[in-house]
Design a protein around this nucleic acid. Structure first.
Lengths: 264, 264
DNA sequence: TTGCCTACTTGATTTGGATCAGTTTCGAAA
DNA sequence: TTTCGAAACTGATCCAAATCAAGTAGGCAA
């Protein structure tokens, strides 16, 4: 699986390979260092806002901690862990999921480089879900008390947090609707593509970092249905897919199919 | 329809068999005036935090504006309206819903006295849904720019906003799961009851303020299915229901049925 | 009163997707 | 190499809930 992941990374970005060993200064949106913040991160504007002044810069260093590397299958946090921080994906991908009393898993979301996990833990004050690494990666850990304090000082930071929370709320309610397997699948693929594009990768040619089962669970379908829909999309020429490597041949048509689940 | 609403309110309070909870001193959470804030409102802690000092009190008056009355069917805000404020329900009930390109409606939520609408508008900066009054009511309008400014000054306010957003996020993802009609319906009824109880009403005997069709839409079921499930629950002795008047005879069993959708 | 109209209920039938049951592929371990 | 196991694909069957189709009850206007 690691081999696959490495290939993803190289395809998506520049010239990187052989990544079954986690590499500290690694690919995938990881262009930040102590003085330069990751340009494609959801927190970029925060880090930049904070970073205006010298004193703020030190505040940022208290706030942010680079964690990892994590290997596929490892947990960024566990259901029930006390909430102290939110995380931004620096490299790799993550899924969040809950397991209910009966042992049924529910995948809540997939997170790409530049995206943020843990916002749903603020209210209960502990993580309500697990965050499981799908592709080897590492993360920025933002102390939430420190970030709140900073948000009180810097309006842009506060506003950014409000907006991130609100955005996630909107995304959650889109998926809540009543839609066919085709609609869900098309919307899912287009959404993934657009998110990759936002972070500077190809929006039409990328690697699925999650299993069919995880996709199915996330979309509330059976894994077999996901397989069938993907096969049909392929036979219609909408996509090319081999294993987890995916090409969106006709994003416009996919977007049309999935329009009722997509914003705009 | 207005007649019904009036009746609902009176029934909710007086003819409550089980309720040993102390009755609220005034109807439907509307116990605030210029100097006394609604104790059962989701914003109570905010208003109280703000209201400590005399100067803060005037800040609060700039922030909050009482609007209404609204009649059933009227809109608190429309899809696409520019986002300037969030609203707390002072009296009455509200549904929020989106209409997609094909004209299909999707009910996003129902809001009871003391609850807050509009948080999902922060990110897009315009309301992504309609808010439609189900039972005559009125509202507190909180200017969001003013509230943000206040949040920067008063940590409790900021924290409260974060928590409300995060809470709604958690609620949205619970409903996103894959559940049977019985599970959904049971969880819905228990949840409504608990929310009424939180606001000081009976949690076991109340009026449904929304149609079967709205419930169905919200739960992603057909209206006929809602009818059938309610009938079955009645025949099992779990509930009594006549029109929109509802008694939960066995909340514990309902909670068990719906457990996979409910927190705790 | 009569006649709508809307909300709701109940029964009959259909169906989309789940479930069950192989089969294939591929990578990793022995 | 062989074996094993997980992931994925595909076909056959099943089922929960949607859809179709009446029919009932209550509210309201004329």
């Amino acid at each position: 699986m690691n081999g696959t992941i490495t290939k993803d990374a190289s395809q998506m970005r520049s010239s990187d390979q052989i990544g079954r060993l986690p590499q500290p200064p690694s690919p995938i949106a990881d262009d930040g260092d102590e003085n330069h913040f990751c340009r494609t991160c959801a927190f970029a504007s925060v880090c930049l806002a904070v970073g205006y002044g010298k004193s703020d810069l030190s505040a940022l260093h208290c706030l942010v901690e680079h964690v990892g590397p994590f290997r596929a299958g490892e947990y960024v946090f566990h259901n029930g862990d006390p909430f102290r921080a939110i995380f931004a994906v620096r490299a790799g991908t993550v899924k969040t999921s809950m397991v209910d009393r009966d042992g049924r898993e529910q995948v809540l979301g997939f997170y790409l480089p530049g995206e943020v996990i843990g916002l749903n833990a603020i209210y209960p004050d502990h993580f309500p879900c697990d965050a499981i690494v799908l592709e080897n990666g590492h993360f920025c850990r933002f102390s939430f008390p420190a970030m709140s304090a900073l948000a009180a000082r810097i309006p842009a930071v506060q506003q950014h947090l409000f907006r991130m929370l609100s955005k996630e709320l909107g995304a959650a309610s889109l998926l809540a609707g009543d839609h066919s397997a085709d609609e869900r699948m098309a919307a899912f693929l287009v959404d993934l593509g657009e998110r990759y594009a936002t972070r500077g990768f190809s929006g039409t040619h990328f690697q699925l970092s999650m299993s069919r089962g995880d996709i199915a669970n996330y979309l509330r379908l059976a894994a077999e249905t996901v397989s069938r829909v993907l096969s049909r999309f392929r036979s219609l020429g909408l996509i090319e897919i081999e294993g987890r490597e995916l090409v969106l041949n006709n994003p416009a048509e996919l977007r049309r199919i999935g329009q009722s689940l997509l914003p705009n």
